[in-house]
Design a binder for these strands. Structure first.
Length: 839
RNA sequence: GCGGGCGUGGCGGAAUGGUAGACGCCGGGGACUUAAAAUCCCCUGAUCCUAUAGAUCGUGUGGGUUCGAGUCCCACCGCCCGCACCA
């Protein structure tokens, strides 16, 4: 083997072509091997791969390649989440067609992914904007419609009157459109919805079974679904009306001292109609911010309507307020307020001088105990509550609900935070909703043999508004039922629909239907799903729902799409900037010379300010382009960096010094491979043991996605092998290192494998075998402590008896010095670990 | 405010309740070289010290459990993430 340096600029491409030619990573669904489905969240083709993609796909790739080495048939596909607004924005800004822009980006990004040598089954690649894909999506949507899971209703949207488009909440900045700057209007539109709420209970229960999901994500999903149980009942009002309220604490009903409605509640609107003070107050309520932090600091405000609400048990009239802390879209938009046992009600009552009765106390004796400046929401027994006195909270809840139901004035209900999923988008670049509006027949699904309903290509983005709506002919069609003139739906589907079933299409892609259930069953559920935490709620919840909905209509067996989920951290970098008057100008790392004590701009040699280490973002310019670093260091060094140092769930700080270290290690391994010596003989027992221990440990680490630990162990074995004399054991260590490193640095491994006359491609090789007998040390180091403090270490045969260890420990001079003649009260011996002498 | 997570050298981080700081980066010293690059070797938590040895301290702070705590428990401080003033 030559002593030349490993040259990634030659080797990377060579092996990437070799894998392609051998179709190494095409998944065979008819294989007898155990199946592994490894999936990373597919990218939006925004233009170029960014470093976050590189980290995400490297992790998945290591797992996929490792599983293959373990004898699994691996499905590791890649595709493109290709519909979305950036394509339309590009169309408006640059005058390009969204389809052309998107497919160009896909080509660029695919080339970039190829440069990283990912073990992907490109034969299954598709983009969600391919008519074939969205056509099948349309047929699934119609299936759900036929099953009653799709409906239309009027719903309010953010309308930009200049761009003539609907805006997402995050596109509304200070009440103005992000692009046009125009004042955003609320508009009611007839929109399409999916009945995700039908599955609320099932989705919530399913979370319990997701043991291989991060606890954090499970909690976020539970809170998002937001189940609560309580009592809904109506107050009779002094003005003759009734007011339905919902409470989760019916037990505290005797502690209610006022009733409150949201500012946009119909009762409040009625009052405002002939009371301008009330109208002013309602205006005031609308001004406040809506973030949790703003709401938390906002003062509780109320307006006394003068109306009374009759308490269902006492008959007493409680004052009715309009209050800024009551939300219209939760429960009934009206509450019974119990200041003693709800902090918000407490603050409100304190401000407006309303009574704060105690109805729950630690014991009956404490019924008159005053409150200590805040509400008490905890457990206890009911007091001052007539027939409930003495009951615990749970019993009292049940009793009040029972009496309300018997009396016919209320009922126990479950309230969910989860809303139905609005999937209408008034945009061009999405899946056309496959329905036809007919004056006589109403809303009619497009017949399946007419799918896909393709997007028209001749559209312009020069005028504002939805191009589908103003296209001269596209929407004009005839009714599939009666044949009379009719119009196509011009809304398209939310892009989250595209990503709710792509993993099924990866598993099976017949041309005549979305997927084949039997074929899908061979792969699903996804064994390991990897992606960003930003998808913890919406994407993952929608995909869970869509999968259930398909199971509900009989198209699938599986209910949970992702057996195991991993959410990876971000790649971060420090920022470089200079104050330019009031503005701060940022510089890219490539424009800066960084030394250990500062940073200067390459162009003028003057210092720049080094800012905090934060997520890479275009606005702060603290980005590195994956293509640049692949060119400079090679794919393997980049991949190795992505896996080193930081645990994968935490943020990874990018550093020039770090990637250089990785580049050095690539060469170091290469030199070590060159020392593989066919003629060497003899055994090196220590190195052999170390090798087998490493093989076992690295396997465990990769299974646990603890790549940083696997990397550290490979460094250790590398050092040990470098120091060892030539022997068969050393050859085995080198060969094993190559195999273990191959999922992480596949190009280097192939190059080394070929030079060592390895059989075939290392991509098809097996994970090295572990000799269990060699995992066990025959000598161990024993720590000797006196009173828990380390005084000495000694070497003893593995499995020495407690008695022997005690004798050895007491024989230590250092230990004797420490004991200094004191009485030994006790000796703790942990076999093969330590001896602790207690005096 | 609520919920969750995290606090370990100059930095990223290791550590089934059992030798804290593996491994990498930075830094220092040396070898090789005309020189540089590359490579290799050694040192690198703090303090003390009679210095190839030894001692003390040390995992955000204060308590506790234990023969023994970075790890378990309680309280507090700080940082990060998520959120919904959800009745």
């Amino acid at each position: 083997m030559s002593n030349e340096r490993f040259d990634p600029s030659v080797a990377d491409g060579r092996w990437q072509r070799a894998w392609d030619d051998a179709r190494c990573f095409d998944a065979d669904s008819n294989s007898d091997k155990p199946k592994s489905y490894v999936l990373e969240m597919f990218p939006y083709p925004s233009g170029r791969i960014h470093i976050g993609h590189v980290r995400n796909y490297t992790m998945g790739d290591v797992l996929a390649r490792y599983r293959k080495m373990q004898g699994h048939e691996v499905l590791h596909p890649m595709g493109w989440d290709a519909f979305g607004m950036p394509a339309e924005n590009a169309a408006m800004e640059k005058g390009v067609h969204p389809a052309g822009w998107t497919y160009d980006n896909i080509e660029t990004m695919k080339g970039q992914l190829k440069q990283l040598g990912f073990a992907l089954d490109w034969s299954r690649e598709f983009a969600t904007c391919d008519p074939e894909y969205y056509g099948h999506e349309q047929s699934l949507f119609i299936e759900l419609f036929n099953a009653g899971l799709v409906y239309r209703k009027e719903s309010e949207v953010n309308w930009d009157p200049v761009d003539m488009t609907v805006l997402a909440n995050e596109q509304v900045i200070d009440g103005k459109g992000w692009r046009s700057g125009a004042e955003v209007e609320k508009r009611k539109l007839n929109q399409w919805f999916l009945k995700i709420t039908d599955f609320a209970e099932d989705l919530l229960e399913g979370v319990q079974g997701l043991e291989d999901w991060p606890q954090k994500v499970r909690l976020m999903q539970e809170n998002w679904i937001g189940k609560s149980q309580g009592l809904e009942f109506a107050f009779d009002l002094s003005n003759g009306g009734t007011l339905p309220v919902y409470t989760t604490r019916p037990d505290t009903i005797f502690g209610a001292s006022f009733v409150a409605v949201a500012a946009d509640h119909p009762v409040a609107q009625d009052v405002a109609a002939n009371n301008c003070e009330a109208a002013k107050f309602i205006e005031l309520c609308k001004k406040g911010g809506t973030t949790a932090a703003e709401l938390e600091t906002a003062e509780k405000l109320g307006f006394d309507t003068g109306i009374g609400a009759r308490h269902p048990f006492t008959g007493e009239y409680l004052p009715l307020y309009i209050a800024n802390f009551v939300l219209m879209d939760y429960g009934t938009g009206a509450i019974m307020a119990v200041p003693g046992h709800d902090q918000r009600d407490f603050e409100f009552a304190t401000k407006y001088g309303l009574p704060i009765p105690r109805v729950v106390a630690a014991s009956v004796e404490e019924a008159a105990k005053p409150f200590d400046g805040e509400a008490e929401a905890g457990e206890g027994v009911l007091v001052n509550s007539d027939f409930l006195d003495g009951m615990d909270v749970e019993a009292a809840k049940a009793e009040v609900i029972a009496r309300a139901e018997n009396g016919g004035w209320g009922k126990g209900t479950t309230v969910w935070r989860l809303r139905d999923w609005g999937v209408s988008r008034q945009r061009y670049w999405g899946t056309p909703i496959p329905f036809i509006h007919c004056e006589t027949c109403g809303v009619v699904p497009v017949p399946k043999d007419q799918l896909p309903v393709k997007l028209p290509e001749d559209v312009s983005f020069e005028q504002p508004g939805n191009p589908l709506l103003r296209h001269p002919s596209w929407k004009e069609t005839s009714c599939p039922k009666c044949g009379s003139a009719a119009q196509r739906e011009t809304d398209t589907l939310d892009t989250f629909v595209n990503s709710s079933w792509y993993f099924l299409r990866f598993a099976s892609q017949p041309s005549d239907k979305p997927f084949d259930a039997d074929e899908v069953a061979k792969w699903m559920p996804v064994g390991q799903y990897i992606g960003g935490i930003e998808h913890a709620i919406l994407h993952l919840l929608y995909a869970r729902f869509w999968t259930r909905a398909l199971a509900h209509v009989g198209l699938l067996e599986v209910k949970e799409p992702f057996a195991s989920l991993f959410t990876q951290g971000m790649v971060t970098h420090e920022t470089y900037s200079r104050k330019d008057g009031a503005r701060e100008a940022f510089f890219m790392p490539s424009e800066v010379d960084r030394t250990s004590d500062g940073a200067t701009l390459k162009s003028d040699g003057q210092p720049v300010e080094i800012g905090k280490v934060i997520k890479m973002s275009k606005s702060k310019k603290n980005v590195v382009d994956p293509e640049d670093i692949i060119r400079d260091y090679g794919a393997d060094a980049v991949r190795w960096f992505m896996l080193s140092d930081s645990p994968p769930e935490r943020d990874l700080p990018w550093s020039e010094a770090g990637i250089e270290g990785c580049g050095r290690y690539v060469q170091r391994l290469w030199r070590l491979f060159g020392q593989y010596d066919e003629s060497a003989s003899g055994e090196d027992k220590d190195l052999a043991r170390k090798t087998h221990q490493t093989i076992a440990a690295v396997a465990d680490d990769i299974e646990a996605l603890a790549f940083n630990k696997a990397v550290a162990r490979l460094y250790e074995l590398t050092s040990a092998a470098e120091k060892a004399q030539p022997s068969e054991s050393r050859n085995h260590a080198i060969r094993s290192l190559l195999l273990m490193a191959s999922p992480m640095m596949p190009h280097l491994a192939e190059e080394g494998w070929a030079a060592m006359d390895g059989e075939g491609l290392v991509a098809n090789a097996a994970w090295p075998e572990v000799d269990e007998a060699l995992l066990v040390e025959d000598e161990v180091t024993i720590a000797v402590q006196h009173m828990g403090k380390l005084r000495d270490t000694l070497t003893a045969p593995k499995g020495s008896s407690k008695e022997d260890l005690e004798v050895l420990a007491l024989a230590s001079e250092k230990v004797q010095r420490s004991i200094d003649g004191a009485d030994i009260r006790k000796v703790i011996v942990v076999p093969d670990r330590l001896v602790n002498i207690v005096t």
